[in-house]
Amino acid sequence: MAAIVYFRKVSETEEGVEYEFGDDPGDFTRRLTMDKASRTSTVRDELVDHTFLKASRKLNALRTERGVWPERGMSVS
């Protein structure tokens, strides 16, 4: 079974980056914030599930790979 998550940057400050994310790129229903210093994430709705973890891990991987926080992206497995 495939799992997919899409994400798009909403805002960025010196401390963190906020993304909206979900399984439908036309209807994001959730938000997460990445702490730039610790590279840890929190989810606004406090639901720590597979979709949230998948988005968070992909965002960290892209940040490491590119050297900047991505504007948008997706993860499929």
Rank of each mutant, 00 (worst) to 15 (best):
G67D: 10
N60W: 04
M34W: 00
T51H: 10
R66Y: 11
E14N: 15
V5Y: 06
A61M: 12
G73D: 07
V5A: 04
A2V: 14
W69M: 11
R72W: 05
E15W: 00
I4S: 14
L59D: 05
D24E: 12
G16N: 15
D45N: 12
G67R: 06
L47N: 15
A3V: 11
Y6T: 00
M1H: 11
A55H: 02
A55F: 04
L32E: 05
E14V: 02
F21M: 03
R63K: 12
F28S: 04
F52Q: 06
E15Y: 10
R57P: 00
P70K: 00
G16S: 15
R63F: 13
D35W: 06
E18C: 14
H50W: 12
L53E: 10
D27A: 06
V17H: 02
L47C: 11
V5G: 05
E46V: 04
R39S: 13
S75M: 01
G26W: 01
E12Q: 15
G16C: 13
L47W: 08
K36I: 03
F52R: 01
S11A: 13
D27W: 00
R57L: 01
D45A: 02
E15M: 11
T40V: 14
R30N: 05
R39E: 14
E65M: 11
H50R: 14
V43F: 03
K36P: 09
L32K: 03
V17Y: 07
G73C: 06
H50E: 15
K58F: 05
V10T: 04
A3Q: 08
A37F: 06
M34V: 13
A3W: 07
E18K: 09
S38M: 12
T40P: 01
F7S: 02
G73H: 06
F7A: 03
T42L: 06
S77H: 08
G67L: 07
L32T: 05
T40Y: 13
F28I: 00
L32F: 14
G16Y: 12
A55Y: 02
T64Y: 15
G16W: 03
D24L: 03
T51F: 10
